[in-house]
């Protein structure tokens, strides 16, 4: 059988390259968009949202020495940390900076008994179960998950909240706990005998690494 040659022999190579390019391009594009979809950028890490009032944690926490629990009252006892009612702001701002225009939305909301609408910074998908109280009571600090909130003029996300982020810590949870009394301390310095301390805490708080597997799917997807 004789081969029919219509064109220059290089055409075959071009055709092969073309096919390779199309297939490779498609796969590459897929991988690329997967990477983008899972990037910290898409998860809005380190991007400050626009809030109705430029509430500054830096000012109130480091500047005035307020403790997280003054405003996030339920964080130790419930799943939800809670965002303060405007009543709490007004407790101080009835007198301090009361006629500042930046604070007007807060005072208006209080007077009209209407909610002030903050934009969520950390928001898990609805199919994930999360609970603050267990983490706080087992000695996981705010700063481990939310970063140095005390230095932020506007709260920015410091973690992707992706599944691998949760799992990374759950697999090495004994390396991420500290004494319960230091959980709220944003400037905690680990003591020298950290290893011994952690070993003791793992026992005291019953963080049973062998017995109880918190990487099982049903822990977070209930």
């Amino acid at each position: 059988m004789s081969r029919q040659v219509f064109l220059h022999p290089i055409a075959n190579t071009i055709a092969k390259l073309l096919i390779l390019g199309i297939v490779g391009g498609a796969v590459g594009l897929t991988v690329f968009s997967m990477l983008v979809a899972r990037s910290p950028l898409m998860a809005q890490v380190d991007i400050a949202p626009v809030q109705p009032v430029p509430f500054s944690h830096e000012h109130h926490v480091d500047g005035l020495g307020l403790v997280c629990r003054y405003c996030h009252v339920y964080v130790e006892d419930s799943a939800f940390a809670g965002v303060p009612q405007t009543e709490i702001c007004v407790g101080c701002h009835s007198q301090v900076w009361a006629d500042s225009p930046t604070l007007a939305p807060v005072l208006d909301s209080y007077k009209a008994n209407e909610s002030l609408e903050w934009n969520r910074v950390y928001d898990l998908p609805d199919y994930v179960y999360f609970n603050h109280s267990i983490h706080i009571n087992k000695g996981v600090a705010c700063v481990s998950c939310h970063g140095q909130v005390n230095e932020m003029p506007i709260v920015r996300k410091q973690s992707t909240l992706h599944m691998d982020w949760c799992l990374d810590c759950h697999r090495n949870r004994e390396d991420n706990i500290r004494p319960r009394s230091e959980v709220f301390d944003m400037h905690w310095e680990a003591p020298e005998d950290l290893e011994a301390l952690r070993q003791r805490l793992v026992e005291d708080y019953h963080v049973d690494v062998e017995q109880f597997n918190i990487t099982d799917c049903s822990i977070c997807h209930r």
């Binding site: 498609a26 796969v27 897929t30 968009s33 997967m34 979809a37 899972r38 898409m42």
Partner: peptide, 9 residues
């Protein structure tokens, strides 16, 4: 290939 795109997120 189209299905793959659906998986991206």
């Amino acid at each position: 290939v189209c299905l793959l795109f659906v998986m991206t997120g």
